[in-house]
Measured scan of single mutants.
Amino acid sequence: NQASVVANQLIPINTALTLVMMRSEVVTPVGIPAEDIPRLVSMQVNRAVPLGTTLMPDMVRGYA
């Protein structure tokens, strides 16, 4: 089972991601792999991401 990136807090739209906003968790469906967390830092979300939501590739500008 692969860990995915999950929002550690509410992340408002257009917010640049920081390490404290994300955690890794084994979830279904699988989202962005946890090993990509360092790559996600400073990328912006293109929608509001509620606490506990799995980050999907289409939620992060420039990721996919």
Rank of each mutant, 00 (worst) to 15 (best):
V20I: 11
N46E: 15
T54R: 03
A16T: 15
R23K: 10
N46M: 10
N14L: 11
S42C: 15
T54I: 10
V41Y: 04
T15S: 10
I32Q: 01
Q9T: 15
R39Q: 12
M22N: 01
M59Q: 05
I32S: 00
V6L: 12
I11W: 01
A16H: 14
M43K: 14
N8V: 08
R23F: 05
M59L: 05
A7I: 07
T28F: 06
Q9D: 12
P38C: 04
P38Q: 11
T28I: 07
A48F: 11
I11Y: 00
Y63Q: 05
V49F: 02
V26I: 14
G31H: 01
G62V: 03
I11D: 00
L17T: 00
P29H: 09
R61Q: 08
R39Y: 11
N8G: 07
L40A: 00
T53L: 14
M59R: 03
V26Q: 14
V27K: 07
P38G: 12
N8L: 05
P57L: 04
T54P: 07
G62Q: 08
P38A: 14
I13K: 13
P29G: 04
A3H: 11
A7P: 01
P12T: 09
I37P: 00
R61L: 12
V5R: 01
N8T: 15
G62A: 06
M59I: 08
P12A: 09
R61I: 13
A3M: 11
V27G: 03
P50D: 13
V30P: 11
Q44H: 09
E35R: 04
A3Y: 12
R47N: 15
D36I: 05
M21K: 03
V45Y: 00
I32P: 00
S24W: 11
V6T: 13
L40T: 01
L40K: 00
Q2A: 13
V45K: 00
N8W: 04
D58M: 04
V41R: 07
N14I: 02
V30W: 06
N8P: 02
V6P: 00
S42Q: 12
I37W: 03
G31L: 02
A34L: 04
Q44F: 11
L17G: 01
T18N: 08
L17E: 02
V26A: 09
V27N: 03
N14C: 06
L17V: 04
A3R: 04
L19R: 09
Q2T: 09
P50C: 14
E35M: 08
D36E: 13
M56F: 09
L55V: 07
I11V: 11
Q2F: 10
A48G: 08
P33E: 04
E25A: 08
M21L: 07
Q44L: 10
M43Q: 11
M56N: 10
R47I: 10
E25F: 04
P33D: 07
N1W: 07
I11L: 14
A48M: 14
A7M: 05
T18R: 08
T28Y: 10
V27F: 02
L17C: 02
N46V: 15
Q44I: 06
V6G: 01
S4G: 07
V60K: 02
N8H: 13
V49Q: 02
M56L: 11
T28A: 08
P29W: 03
P12V: 07
S4W: 02
V60G: 00
G62Y: 07
N1Q: 13
T28K: 03
N46T: 12
Q2G: 15
Y63T: 04
G62F: 06
A48S: 15
A48H: 14
L55Q: 01
S24Q: 11
R61D: 10
N46R: 09
I13W: 04
Q9H: 12
V49R: 03
Q44T: 11
L17H: 00
V5I: 15
T15K: 08
L40G: 00
V41K: 07
A34H: 10
T18H: 06
V30G: 09
V49N: 01
G62L: 07
M43W: 09
T53C: 07
V60E: 02
P38E: 10
E25L: 03
V26D: 15
V26P: 15
V30I: 10
V41Q: 08
N1F: 14
N8E: 13
E35C: 07
L55K: 00
M43P: 00
T18W: 03
P57S: 14
V49W: 02
L10A: 14
A48R: 06
D58S: 11
V41C: 04
V20A: 12
T15D: 04
L55T: 01
S4L: 01
D58F: 08
M43D: 03
Y63E: 04
